[in-house]
Each structure stands twice: as C-alpha cells, then as structure tokens.
Amino acid sequence: MSRTGNYKSVTHVIFDMDGLLLDTERLYTVSFQEICDRKIQEKIFPSAELMPGVERLIRHLHSYNIPIAVATSSAGQTFEMKTSQHKDFFSLFSHIVLGDDGDVKNGKPQPDSFLVCASRFNPAAQPEKCLVFEDAPNGVLAGRAAGMQVVMIPDDNLDRGLTQEASMVLRTMEEFKPELFGLPAYS
C-alpha cells in the first residue's frame, strides 16, 4: 500500500487528530444517528480511543526529543471533550493548533493550520523539514500546499483515487518506519 520514493529527512512532525490520533470518525457516525443531537457528543466524545500504533510512535518521538505538535480542525470545546481521557498523552506535544485559532484564517485544504503549527515550534520549523500525518484528502492537500511531506492513513472505505497526493500511504500507524524520514528507528 505504501508508495516507494525518495523521502527527505525531517526534524519536526505534525499530526492531525480526528480519525488519525483518535478514533472519533466512528463516534461522529454514532452521534449523527442520534438525530444530530449536539448534547450526545458530550457523552460519547470522551470515549474516543487512540488509533493503533499512535501511542507507540508519539512516545518514541517524544523520547528522542523530536518536536511534535497537533494541527486539528476541531475547535477548543470539542477538542477538550475528545481528549478528556487522554490528558497525559496530549501533554507530550509541544503545542496544539485548533480549528478556531485566530491565526488560522482558512481551514484545510488551505495550508494555514500546518504553517501556523510549524511557526510555533521553538525555534520555528521550516515547512520542508516537517512531516505531516493525515487521514483526510483535504488534510493531505493542506500539508502539500504547506510544502510538507505527508503520510496518509486513510479510512478503509476511502476511494484510493483520493490518496494520490500523499508522500506515503499506510493502513495503520503501526506500519510507519521513522527511519525512512531520517527519524530515529524503533529499537
């Protein structure tokens, strides 16, 4: 499934959240089936689980002091609901750029969220030195527009024609080999 190619070494890693770090897509389906009752989201979003391979990769990168951050389209209140059971995990990221961040003028597929995220690393990261993880076609387009390489981990039901822009396509985070991008290999 993964595309072969010459991958450039990176120094920073940026992650989307919904459907990539957290299994929230399934919960959206559940809440829409509950007649789009907004109040139901407060009950079910805290039950979001981490996706396979996510905790291992984040803790691995963190242990090697690789700067990591999150760029999500979720707004503050929704983010708090979704991450309430994973406070320790999300504390590993150097920063988190939310969908309602004042500096993010345009949502994905525009590159704003990833460029703002890169600029907030200390010191700021060059976009070409950032690797993005995404599950959605608009997120892949945003990462590419920002000048970044993008690893896509799409939903199994996604039309494969919508994965063309990604630098690499994987079934799960468990398949990722950090050393392909110049990052420390798993021991």
Rank of each mutant, 00 (worst) to 15 (best):
E34W: 10
K129Q: 15
Q77H: 11
P52L: 03
D37N: 15
P137K: 01
K108V: 05
K108E: 06
E34I: 15
N65G: 08
N65D: 15
C117N: 11
A48I: 01
I40C: 08
A142I: 08
P111R: 10
A124L: 11
F114N: 07
P137W: 02
F133W: 07
V116C: 00
P123L: 04
S94M: 07
H86L: 05
I35E: 15
P67T: 00
C117M: 08
M81F: 03
F114W: 09
F79W: 14
D101F: 01
E42K: 14
P52C: 00
A71L: 03
A124N: 13
K39D: 09
D100C: 06
D37Y: 07
P67G: 01
T83P: 12
S119M: 09
E80M: 13
I68R: 06
K87I: 08
S84M: 04
D37L: 13
H60K: 10
R38N: 07
R120I: 00
Q41F: 03
A125W: 04
A136H: 10
D135K: 02
F89R: 00
G53R: 08
G102N: 13
K39C: 03
K82P: 06
H86F: 02
V104N: 01
M51A: 12
L92W: 09
E49W: 01
C130H: 10
V140N: 05
S73G: 12
L115A: 01
E42R: 13
I44T: 04
D37T: 13
L98K: 12
S113R: 03
A136M: 09
T78C: 02
A75K: 15
